[in-house]
Design a protein around this nucleic acid. Structure first.
Length: 260
DNA sequence: ATGGCGATTATTAATCGA
């Protein structure tokens, strides 16, 4: 089973690039973030025509997440994280696909930091950590996939010293990510490629992609029930180098569930 | 250290992302 995560930065303007990538790589599950489209503007017909069924949680202008499955409808488990009744941002969606619980998440950016946006990021992180504990307690096979807006270590930033005060790399942010991992999650990309420079995002400025000035902020975390099934992981870097690209590249894992 | 690009929304400029 191939599971991918892709921050599309606007599904309306990214639809041709998304469809091309789906056709080329045929993931079994695709988690999308930053739809930047209201609920009724999701291009469901085009997704269906590509062989996928989808559930999504849209929002006008910002955020928005979706889970696509090839040839079957993702069975929704829930949307949104508990712990803040006031939170209206569409950033979290859970679904069951072929016996695997897939959580698609778009963690807040948090800049500028410090400030209210950074506070929101850290609070959102704590709510995710609480949900992570529940999911692990269930013993279910779970993948947490999405744009975490965190570079976990210095290896995950092209120039770490430039990013130490940024919301994506501040000590509080990294600490939260590491507390999440310490619950028992497996960082799939890093596990398959220890010590390697791996980026999933290159900003639009200053030829960042051409200079390989990137960040690793899109992650797939596996529960212990799934970690032993991990066979491969990677980033579809070339997608970032095409016309009209997202600033993120699709990131994926391959699980062997034959003996599951 | 700054500003650069791209998408969206409401009316050609502001906001947001990372």
């Amino acid at each position: 089973m191939r599971i991918a995560t892709f921050n599309v930065n606007g599904i309306t303007s990214r639809l041709p690039a998304l469809l091309r990538w789906l056709e080329e790589t045929r993931p079994d599950v695709a988690c999308l973030q930053e739809l930047k489209a209201p609920q009724d503007k999701f291009p469901e017909a085009a997704i269906n025509a590509a062989g996928y069924e989808a559930i999504w949680h849209g929002q006008k202008s910002w955020n928005g997440v979706a889970i696509l499955a090839r040839g079957s409808k993702p069975q929704e488990v829930g949307r949104g994280l508990a712990g803040d009744a006031e939170d209206e941002q569409s950033r979290y969606l859970e679904a069951a696909v072929d016996g695997v619980l897939v959580a698609c998440l778009y963690l807040p950016n948090g800049n500028p930091a410090p400030g209210p946006k950074f506070d929101y990021k850290l609070q959102w992180f704590e709510r995710l950590i609480a949900r992570g504990a529940e999911l692990l307690d269930s013993g279910a096979p779970v993948v947490l996939a999405g744009d975490f807006n965190v570079m976990p270590t210095e290896l995950d930033v092209y120039k770490p010293e430039r990013w130490t005060s940024d919301a994506l790399f501040r000590p509080e942010t990294r600490d939260a990510f590491h507390r999440l991992l310490a619950q028992g999650w497996c960082d799939a990309l890093r596990t398959m490629h220890p010590g390697e420079k791996i980026y999933t995002f290159w900003d639009y400025f200053r030829n960042a992609y051409q200079r390989d000035a990137g960040l690793r902020i899109d992650h797939l975390l596996l529960s212990p029930a799934l970690a032993g099934s991990l066979r491969a992981a990677g980033v579809d870097r070339d997608v970032r180098g095409r016309d009209k690209p997202s600033d993120h590249a699709p990131t994926w894992i391959e699980l062997d569930l034959k003996n599951f």
